[in-house]
C-alpha cells in the first residue's frame, strides 16, 4: 500500500516544523470556513495555491484527489442553483436558476477547494507519524496518539492479510455477484480479518509489556522550531488578517 504520496518531497514546506504547519492550518481553515461571499474565499484559494506551488506535489496524484473531492461539489451544482430561492437568473422551462443559488455554489466551490489544497500543502506534506508526534505537543490526549500509532502501523499488515485471503478465495473460483453466497463470503473475509487482528493485538500487548510499556512510548527525536518556522507562521497569520481587512 502506497499511503503517504504527498509526504515524499523535499520542498521548504515538507521541512517545516509540523507543529507550526498544524497551527497555520487550523487558523487558515477557521478563517476560510467563516469567510462569507465570494471574494474572501477566493483570496484564501490564492493563498493555498501559493503553498501548493511551493510544495509541488505529484501532479497526477494531486489532480485525481482534487477531482474526487469535487465530485460532491458537482452534485451540489446540479441541485443548488435550481432549488435555492432567489432572483431568477435563467429560466429553463418551468425551472428557475436563481442568482443567489449560483453565488452560493461558487462560494462553496472556492472554500472547499481552498481547504482541500491547504490540507495537501500543509498537512499531507508531513508523514503521519510526525503529525501524530506534533499532536502530542499540541496537547492531544496521549492515549489517542498511542491508539493512532498502533492503528496506522498495522494497516499495512492487515492489508497484507486481506490480500492473502482474497487470493485464496479467487483461487477457489469465487466470482462476486449480487447474491447471498457473495455476501456471506465477504462477511467471512471480514470476520477472518477481525479475528486475526484480535489475536495479533494480544501478541502485541504481550510484546509491549515485555518492553516495559506503562502508558506511553519514549520519544527519540525532537522538533526544533527555527527562524524559518517562525517566519512562516508570522507571514501566514498576517496574510489572513490582511485578507479579512481587505474585504
Amino acid at each position: 500500500m502506497h499511503l503517504e504520496e504527498f509526504a515524499e518531497g523535499k520542498s521548504i514546506l515538507h521541512n517545516l516544523d509540523p507543529r507550526v504547519k498544524i497551527i497555520v492550518f487550523v487558523v487558515f481553515s477557521i478563517f476560510c470556513v467563516l469567510a462569507p461571499g465570494v471574494k474572501l474565499p477566493l483570496f484564501f484559494l490564492f493563498y493555498s495555491l501559493a503553498l501548493l506551488f511551493i510544495a509541488r506535489p505529484n501532479t497526477k496524484a494531486f489532480i485525481s484527489r482534487l477531482a474526487m473531492a469535487n465530485l460532491f461539489i458537482g452534485i451540489v451544482w446540479i441541485f443548488i442553483p435550481l432549488s435555492y430561492k432567489g432572483n431568477t437568473y435563467l429560466a429553463l422551462g418551468s425551472m428557475n436558476v436563481s442568482q443567489e443559488g449560483i453565488q452560493y455554489a461558487v462560494s462553496i466551490t472556492l472554500k472547499s477547494n481552498a481547504v482541500i489544497i491547504g490540507t495537501i500543502a500543509l498537512i499531507s506534506t508531513s508523514s503521519a507519524f510526525r503529525l501524530a508526534h506534533a499532536m502530542l505537543h499540541l496537547k492531544v490526549p496521549k492515549k489517542l496518539i498511542i491508539l493512532f500509532f498502533l492503528f496506522y502501523r498495522y494497516i499495512t499488515v492487515v492489508h497484507e492479510e486481506y490480500l492473502t485471503i482474497k487470493r485464496a478465495i479467487l483461487l477457489r473460483g469465487f466470482v462476486p455477484r449480487t447474491d447471498i453466497h457473495t455476501y456471506r463470503t465477504f462477511a467471512y473475509m471480514v470476520g477472518g480479518l477481525l479475528i486475526k487482528s484480535y489475536e495479533r493485538a494480544e501478541e502485541i500487548y504481550k510484546a509491549m509489556l515485555c518492553r516495559g510499556f506503562g502508558g506511553s512510548f519514549p520519544l527519540l527525536d525532537h522538533f526544533r522550531m527555527g527562524h524559518r518556522d517562525a517566519l512562516f507562521l508570522l507571514l501566514s497569520i498576517l496574510t489572513f488578517f490582511a485578507f479579512w481587512m481587505k474585504s
Binding site: 491508539l147 502501523r153 498495522y154 492487515v158 455476501y183 480479518l193 484480535y198 494480544e202 502485541i204 500487548y205
Partner: peptide, 24 residues
C-alpha cells in the same frame, strides 16, 4: 491501557474492510 492494542488493530481491520467493494 491493556485494550489499546485491540482497539487499534481492530480499527486497522475496519479500515482495510472499508476498501472492499461489494457488488450491488
Amino acid at each position: 491501557n491493556e485494550d489499546i492494542p485491540k482497539a487499534a488493530v481492530l480499527s486497522s481491520a475496519f479500515f482495510v474492510a472499508s476498501l472492499i467493494h461489494v457488488p450491488l
